[in-house]
């Protein structure tokens, strides 16, 4: 252990530091090390928030809130039990769920908290025909189906990791994932 740790700086120069190393640095009081984690995960966190909230502005606010919460909760993160990415997706997911609940409370007429996807310039830039159709089809999926789909296909999570993020049993996760794809298939290609 000592050998590896005394050579810490050389090690950092040779290789991109892994999440756990950065977390240790942050816990030692080096807040700037957290910037590496933000850079590393911001797109994934933002994409998850956006796929759940369907609003660029709100997704950005919630992502920011998520990173602050991640920073403040780092000391209770247990690397032995959960992968860092799974843990931060869970934090983001919970914040998004809270946000959707608040949205429903303030605008009870909006159906299921879903708003029409907002098209920012950035979004339009990537929205070529096929991608745009798919993007809209994903946005139209009910939240409970959309989230496991996004976690699997955009974030590369396994079934088991999705269970951890959503705090749901495997049977429900599988079922929702299958239904999401069936619904998506119907939207993209019509029924059977």
């Amino acid at each position: 252990m000592g050998q590896e740790l005394t050579g810490d700086e050389n090690y950092a120069e040779r290789k991109i530091p892994d999440d756990e190393k950065i977390i240790k640095q942050v816990l030692l009081g080096d807040a700037t090390a957290f910037e590496i984690l933000v850079e590393r995960y911001k797109s994934k966190i933002f994409t998850l928030a956006y796929r759940m909230l369907s609003s660029m502005e709100e997704a950005e606010d919630v992502s920011q809130e998520a990173f602050v919460k991640i920073y403040r909760s780092l000391k209770i993160y247990d690397a032995g039990r959960t992968k860092f990415s799974t843990w931060i997706y869970r934090i983001t997911y919970n914040l998004c769920v809270d946000h959707l609940r608040k949205r429903r409370e303030t605008a009870p007429l909006a159906e299921d908290g879903i708003v029409a996807p907002s098209a920012s310039p950035e979004e339009l830039a990537v929205a070529k025909d096929g991608a745009r159709i798919l993007h809209e089809a994903i946005c139209e999926l009910p939240e409970e189906y959309r989230v496991p789909l996004v976690l699997f296909h955009f974030h590369g999570l396994s079934y088991r990791e999705i269970c951890k993020v959503l705090n749901l049993p495997m049977s429900i996760v599988k079922n929702r994932l299958f239904r999401a794809r069936r619904l998506l298939k119907e939207k993209l290609y019509g029924g059977d």
Binding site: F46, Q64, E122, L134
Partner: peptide, 16 residues
């Protein structure tokens, strides 16, 4: 093939 989305350019600075 659907890309990951990126937040605005000043995102990391705002978080930090």
């Amino acid at each position: 093939e659907l890309p990951l989305l990126s937040p605005s350019p000043g995102f990391t600075r705002k978080v930090m």
